[in-house]
């Protein structure tokens, strides 16, 4: 509807553009760089990024809590973690600058983004935990049926 102001800065105001076209091309270059980095990492797959940064903690309750809080660094290959973070960065700039979420009212922004993020995280958590459980059952196969 009505013309509201476009904000012309990205990276929390560190990079300012003069016109909206310039901002679009700036975001395009940024997204291209991220994609190139992803593809290069995907082809090279550096050995050092193929094993998790830290191994899981053993012991009591505190070790379990540490394993949960540090799970991205304990149970994931750093390369996959990098890919997922870069994907979310790309998604942010597509939504914020190409879809003009940056210029929408805060209420609309939260209605769309928080709803989606909450439901997606919940679903992914449940399904991945269940998938891992079934993997363990298949691997150890001491339960044949009732799992």
């Amino acid at each position: 509807m009505g013309h509201h102001e476009h904000s012309l800065a990205i990276f929390r105001g560190r990079l300012k553009f003069k016109t909206i076209e310039q901002k679009i091309w700036g975001v395009f270059i940024f997204l291209s760089i991220i994609t190139i980095v992803e593809v290069v990492f995907g082809i090279i797959k550096p050995e050092s990024l193929m094993v998790p940064f830290i191994s899981s903690f053993e012991g009591g309750f505190m070790a379990t809590m540490a394993n949960i809080f540090l799970s991205p660094f304990i149970f994931m290959k750093p390369l996959n973690l990098i890919f997922i973070v870069l994907t979310i960065v790309k998604a942010y700039y597509i939504t914020w600058d190409f879809m003009h979420m940056r210029d929408e009212k805060k209420a609309l922004r939260r209605m769309v983004v928080w709803t989606a993020i909450f439901l997606i995280c919940y679903l992914v958590l449940i399904l991945l935990v269940e998938g891992d459980y079934i993997f363990e059952v298949y691997k150890n196969n001491y339960i044949k049926f009732d799992f």
């Binding site: 769309v112 439901l119 679903l123 992914v124 399904l127 269940e130 993997f135």
Partner: peptide
């Protein structure tokens, strides 16, 4: 925007199901 949210959840459902099956046969 509302349509996009619902469609995003549909696609997330598919990708999460992919993740589920992949975790089942992760090796």
């Amino acid at each position: 925007w509302f349509f996009i949210v619902s469609d995003a959840l549909t696609f997330s459902g598919f990708l999460a199901a992919y993740g589920f099956s992949r975790f089942k046969f992760v090796n």
